[in-house]
Simulated scan of single mutants.
Amino acid sequence: MEPMVESTYLDKNIRFLRKRMNLSQEELACKIGLNRGNIASYENGSAEPKVCNLLRISRLFGVSICDLAQRDLSEGQAASRVNGHLVSDLQDQLKNPEQLEVIHSNAQRMLQMIEGLMTCSRIKLEQADNQIPQELRLIIVNFEELYRTARSLMDEHLSLLKSLNCKDSSTTK
């Protein structure tokens, strides 16, 4: 008995999205760290990308992996989706000052939460003196890196909102 293989649109979507971005197979391959032959084999269906390459492709094209594999992106509405949202809906939200203000307010609350978590962590560390086990020190280093990454993302998010003419009070670092 043959296993049931779900039909996918992966090969067609890679070709469609590459052409829509006016990229050659060579250019696409270069952008995601592969060679032209890999892209050609993905597009003709003789090979499927490894998960890490599939993730790179989906990020480059701004679509989810699920959409890339399971939707025909060359058909009208599906082609205008980004991470499951219709681009027109996103554009409408960005034109709406009230919606932008809600997004900005949520971003400010998220930033306050991130800062609060870091403050709590620093207070706990000060209270612990030097009684911190080695395993916990590794967790602390990872948490601090996560904090810096989250803070950087929030700063970029707020900067983007500011560029969309959403009022932005200055953030503290």
Rank of each mutant, 00 (worst) to 15 (best):
Ala107Asp: 00
Gln108Arg: 11
Ile65His: 03
Gln131Leu: 09
Gln127Lys: 11
Ser80Gln: 14
Ile114Asp: 04
Arg20Pro: 03
Leu86Phe: 07
Val102Cys: 10
Lys19Leu: 11
Cys120Asn: 15
Ala107His: 00
Ile123Val: 15
Ser58Tyr: 00
Cys30Pro: 01
Leu28Val: 05
Cys66Ala: 13
Ala79Ile: 01
Met118Ser: 11
Leu136Ala: 13
His104Pro: 00
Phe16Tyr: 14
Leu55Met: 11
Ala29Leu: 03
Lys95His: 11
Ala69Met: 11
Ala40Cys: 13
Asn22Phe: 09
Glu48Val: 08
Ser64Gly: 10
Glu43Ser: 06
Ile39Met: 04
Ile32Thr: 06
Arg59Met: 08
Gln91Lys: 10
Arg71Gly: 03
Phe61Thr: 03
Ser64Trp: 00
Leu23Ile: 02
Cys30Gly: 11
Val82Asn: 04
Pro97Val: 03
Arg71Val: 04
Gly33Tyr: 01
Glu98Thr: 14
Val51Thr: 07
Ile103Phe: 05
Ile114Cys: 10
Ile103Glu: 01
Asn53Arg: 07
Glu48Gln: 14
Val102Arg: 12
Ser80Glu: 14
Asn38Ser: 15
Asp92Ala: 15
Ser58His: 01
Asn106Lys: 13
Glu135Ile: 08
Gln77Ala: 15
Asn44Thr: 12
Lys31Ile: 06
Glu98Met: 08
Met21Tyr: 12
Ala128Leu: 09
Asp129Ser: 15
Val63Glu: 02
Pro49Met: 02
Thr119Phe: 12
Asn53Phe: 05
Ser88Glu: 13
Gln127Val: 07
Asp72His: 05
Leu125His: 03
Ile14Phe: 00
Leu138Glu: 14
Lys124Tyr: 10
Asp89Cys: 09
Gly84Cys: 06
Ser58Ala: 13
Leu138Gln: 13
Asp72Gly: 09
Tyr42Pro: 00
Glu75Gln: 15
Gly45Asn: 05
Asp67Val: 05
Cys120Trp: 08
Gly116Cys: 07
Leu34Thr: 13
Gln77Val: 15
Arg109Asp: 10
Asp67Ala: 10
Leu111His: 09
Leu86Val: 07
Glu115Cys: 08
Glu26Val: 09
Ala78Pro: 04
Glu48Thr: 09
Leu68Cys: 03
Ile57Lys: 00
Arg56Asn: 12
Ala40Val: 10
Met118Glu: 12
Leu111Lys: 08
Lys124Val: 11
Gly84Ala: 04
Asn22Tyr: 10
Ile123Gln: 12
Asp72Val: 09
Cys66Asp: 15
Asn35Glu: 10
Met113Gly: 07
Asn130Pro: 02
Ser74Thr: 06
Leu34Gly: 05
Val51Glu: 07
Ile139Trp: 10
Ile123Gly: 07
Ser121Glu: 07
Ile39Ala: 03
Arg36His: 06
Arg137Trp: 07
Glu27Met: 09
Arg137Phe: 03
Phe16Asp: 02
Gly62Asp: 07
Asp89Arg: 08
Ala79His: 05
Asp72Phe: 04
Ala69Gln: 06
Asn53Leu: 02
Arg18Lys: 06
Leu100Arg: 14
Asn96Met: 04
Val63Leu: 01
Gly37Lys: 12
Ile132Phe: 03
